[in-house]
């Protein structure tokens, strides 16, 4: 067809005949083609204008030299990736510990009855404390403070305290996610379990928590995207990881391009994880819709 857009022409009707749905189908296809074209054109215009403004900025040449040096980029990338391996190890070890500690705190906070009041109080205080403090502060205080006490047998390695800090910080958040999940399981499930003679703990272990965990997997993954990025915080206490590696490179070359390499590494790892989380949420939603019928 020569013309795109505009009202349906005689040609459209002739090709489709009097077959209504076919005509509608063709029209819908054409409309979607049009919106794609408009979206593409507006993107080109917008980003083109933005690029033009940046490239023509007074400091562009200096910026390009200190942030976008291809030689330094490729030269620093291998070491940056090697540094990232430390972040991966931090992330993997801390994540396992967070999943365990977060669940433990959530369960402790969910224990009913006056007997468990001190336990609930402690768990609540822990969550409040570590959600209130900025992560950098906790890293400094634990990473420098505790080894500084010089108590015999207490580890002094920054890597150890990095794991401890990340675990304490994120378990507070994750325990709240778990707790929301536990509270979303209907009390009739616990009643059914208890009526069969299962103890309070057995009901939690076999009936409530498995259902709760299933429901909170997407928000948990979301927190882990945050954790992945926050592993760079531990560079402040001297763990040589991706950010620290880039800092060293920057100091040696007086050039900021290594940070660009860091940014790209994080984009490459984090965006797929974010998409995966979106996919999981969408799948769960579809499943829930099918379940209610």
């Amino acid at each position: 067809m020569a013309t795109h857009g505009g009202p349906p022409t005689v040609t459209d009707l002739d090709v489709g005949g009097v077959d209504g749905p076919r005509f509608v189908g063709r029209r819908r296809q054409r409309v979607s083609w049009r919106s794609t074209a408009i979206a593409a054109a507006s993107a080109v215009v917008f980003f083109g204008a933005l690029g033009w403004i940046v490239v023509n900025a007074p400091g562009w040449d200096a910026f390009r030299e200190s942030f976008l040096d291809p030689r330094i980029f490729w030269g620093s990338l291998p070491d940056v990736i090697k540094g990232f391996w430390t972040n991966v190890r931090l992330f993997l070890i801390a994540e396992v510990l967070i999943l365990v500690l977060g669940l433990l705190v959530a369960v402790l906070r969910s224990l009913p009855g006056p007997v468990f009041f001190p336990v609930r109080l402690l768990a609540t205080a822990y969550v409040d404390l570590f959600r209130a403090l900025p992560g950098v502060l906790v890293i400094f205080m634990l990473g420098f403070g505790i080894p500084g006490l010089g108590i015999a047998g207490v580890p002094v390695e920054p890597f150890f305290w990095a794991i401890v800090t990340l675990t304490l910080l994120y378990s507070a958040y994750v325990s709240e996610v778990y707790r929301a999940g536990i509270e979303s399981v209907h009390p009739s499930q616990d009643a059914a379990a208890r009526s069969l003679g299962l103890s309070r703990f057995q009901s939690l272990r076999h009936v409530v928590v498995p259902q709760a965990v299933r429901r909170v997997i997407p928000p948990l993954l979301n927190d882990f995207i945050g954790l992945q990025k926050d592993t760079v915080l531990v560079s402040f206490i001297g763990v040589v990881e991706i950010f620290r590696t880039a800092q060293i490179k920057q100091a040696a070359t007086f050039n900021f391009t290594p940070y660009l390499a860091v940014a790209l590494v994080f984009l490459v790892v984090t965006i797929p994880l974010a998409r995966f989380t979106d996919w999981l949420v969408a799948r769960d939603r579809a499943k829930a819709a099918a379940g209610t019928r």
């Binding site: 009739s188 059914a192 208890r194 003679g197 009936v207 259902q211």
Partner: peptide
Amino acid sequence: DRIRRRIGIVFQAFNLF
């Protein structure tokens, strides 16, 4: 828990796991 072992209950809403 020991008492409940001897008493079964079936609920209106099934409450299966």
